[in-house]
Amino acid sequence: MTESKQNQVFVTTERCKGCRFCIEFCPQHLLYESDETNSKGYHIVHMDDNGKCIGCEMCSMVCPEFAIHIVTADEEPEQGEG
């Protein structure tokens, strides 16, 4: 198991609608539905990661809300209004 570089996963909580697609499609099964809810009452997805995120972006591609995306370690995160 190669040591996963520091991939960062970003969740925009207000956009998550708790559909759980990302949880289903993450090949490493790192995402789970947390107790934290956003203003609409949807349970936000959290990541239980011990460095296993391989940066495959499945979560980001399957998310229908554009609420989760990844910046892989070698990529410099560009600033944007988010």
Binding site: S4, Q6, N7, Q8, V9, F10, V11, T12, T13, E14, R15, K17, E36, I44, H46, M47, D49, N50, G51, C53, S60, E65, F66, A67, H69, V71, P77, E78, Q79, G80, E81, G82
Partner: peptide, 26 residues
């Protein structure tokens, strides 16, 4: 080693930001 999941309003650019009207999401 726990990789922090940044939740809440992120400043990091979503890869599709230039092609989606983020001002109209959710």
């Amino acid at each position: 080693m726990n990789v922090p999941v940044v939740t809440g309003e992120t400043t990091e650019k979503h890869p599709l930001e230039d092609y989606l009207r983020f001002d109209r999401l959710p």
